[in-house]
Design a protein around this nucleic acid. Structure first.
Lengths: 336, 336
DNA sequence: CTGAAAGCGCTTACAG
DNA sequence: CTGAAAGCGCTTACAG
């Protein structure tokens, strides 16, 4: 069963491929194709089960109607949700999404950028890795539509949609202070990425403002050795610095493992110490009391990422917008 | 900055595009291209930052090195994990993965099959919807490589990789019986899909074997009204049939919501009643006691799905294998 | 060892 | 209103 192409339809009907193409793309007005020819073509196309070949179309048009999405790890709930919303919106614009993982490796980011480029994606939505700036920069310099999400590189002016991590973090810490915490630990990744730096800065500034800052209370975890590092960090916070009465976890994975460790050590939340987490985890539903967390507007982030990218695709040399969204504090016993 | 193609390299070097293509694809042996010409071409390609155009290649070769993955919902942890492993393996074979969601809608399944077909994917990995069989059947009949995963349609012989849901379910129920449960509820989706039918059948057979079967203990939930149905189902199980001493949850979403409801009603696990869940949820880590659950070998499922698909792509008219994996019971206080 | 040419399926000026 | 033709970038017989 040979593939049915525009040519086969044209031959059967004794018309030119140009006419068939025009009709099948709804451009019969422009080509001013007669109504009956158009009707005949549409019927025959259906009858022959014509299916357009987007590869050929893409080659000819110089665009693929495909978006390349690069995230750290699609099996992480945060990125999975983000990917979901990006996809739903991309679909509305007629784009398909190719999703790839970096697992936070700069090498894989480079590789994935190349893979997606060779697939002629019309644009990139990227959650960059720690030292991934050069690869993103190359894209931007070549005017390839690119939107960063979750983490921005302010130095290069790619498009971006991020959360105001600084104020979100400060908000979290202040809520702990307002609950009476004085010695507040921070569990965060050791990372040069902007969102981590901002979360740390938000924590430090908010705490310093109240005169409670102590560098020993900041524990920086290595992404690659996380399950090992977390218990050590928590133990050190609680045992050595046993005045700790609150902990701010800077990501959902960190909170998951951290809270687990707190439970292992029989610390009760919020009696023994209070916590706030960045991002929700399903697990919070199972806790006896509601766990306060910073809520990032994921559906919005996905939508805006797609919208910014589509704008760039339309006008590759136009200015690239950077959108910052506010995150909210949920489940906190104190008002904001 | 014009795109650099094989042609531009050929022109600069004064050789033919055929030679360039041969060299860049490592087929210089076949074409018996001289070493120095080959070397010159490789150097110039690097120098000009040549990047192959996979669209053109795909059009010419009749394949795209792309796999279409259709899942119910990429933001569900089960599918997100599955997608992760599928991707990692696809990459090894040089395939990219386009992921799309159906949200359990048959209409969207049909649409996504068409979208992916027009993108000339070389094969499909599909988590089918309840009434999605016709769309899958069309693919199979046309000899388009297709592997079903998680849920099989036994009637059509697509390739498939599934878990032995029947025995997994029976195993779960028997573990409850061995712990002394006599009145065991089942919370399951109302669905004609094979995996659900099998899980229900496994439950019924295992329970009947011990003479404890009571149809009132089976609560079938509608996917679309789940957050409403679950509390009602649990309440009805516990209040009307208050001899209930165990519950088997047939999916992770059902267990999440179900256990939450049990906690709302102040039922303690396992003192007041015992539970077993299908699939792990992150939340289990936060429970005071370990929650027993059926573990599906996701990494294996992903790997095998890709392997089966690659086999089919190599030999589209060959026999399509169907692999059934065993799931294990984790965290149960009784041995298996 | 290398080149000229055809063709994958499509769209788009151009000509009539 | 419609057709002939070029060309997107690639690969692959074919010829020499």
């Amino acid at each position: 069963m040979a593939r049915v192409s525009i040519k086969s339809i044209a031959e059967v009907l004794g018309v030119s491929t140009a006419t068939v193409s025009l009709v099948l793309n709804g451009k019969e007005k422009e080509g001013r194709v007669s109504k009956d020819v158009a009707e005949k073509i549409r019927l025959k196309a259906k009858e022959m089960h014509y299916e357009p070949n987007n590869l050929a179309r893409g080659l000819r048009m110089g665009c693929s109607q495909t978006i390349g999405l690069i995230v750290a790890d699609i099996s992480n709930l945060f990125f999975a949700n983000l990917a979901f919303h990006i996809q739903e919106h991309a679909e509305k614009y007629g784009y398909s999404v190719i999703i790839t993982n970096t697992n936070e490796s700069d090498l894989k980011l480079e590789k994935m950028v190349n893979v997606l480029k060779s697939r002629q994606v019309d644009g990139f939505i990227i959650v960059p890795t720690e030292h991934g700036m050069p690869y993103v920069e190359t894209l931007v310099k070549r005017n390839i539509p690119t939107v960063l999400v979750d983490r921005n590189f302010a130095e290069i002016k790619a498009g971006a949609v991020v959360v105001d991590n600084y104020h979100a973090s400060a908000k979290a810490v202040k809520s702990l202070i307002r609950q009476g915490c004085r010695n507040i630990g921070l569990i965060i990744y050791k990372s040069r990425l902007q969102h981590m730096r901002e979360r740390k800065r938000g924590y430090i500034d908010a705490i310093t403002e109240h005169g409670f800052y102590n560098p020993d209370f900041v524990k920086e975890i290595n992404y690659s050795t996380i399950s090992n590092d977390i218990p050590i960090a928590i133990e050190s916070l609680l045992l050595k610095e046993n005045r700790i009465d609150g902990i701010f976890f800077a990501t959902n994975t960190l909170s998951m493992l951290g809270i687990k460790q707190l439970m292992n050590m029989n610390r009760r939340i919020p009696e023994d110490l209070k916590v706030v987490c960045f991002d929700k985890s399903d697990a919070f539903d199972f806790m006896d009391i509601p766990i306060p967390y910073i809520f990032q507007p994921l559906p919005e982030m996905g939508r805006i990422a797609v919208e910014l990218l589509v704008e760039q695709i339309k006008e590759p040399s136009g200015e690239r917008k950077c959108v910052e969204l506010q995150a909210s504090l949920v489940n906190s016993p104190v008002n904001n």
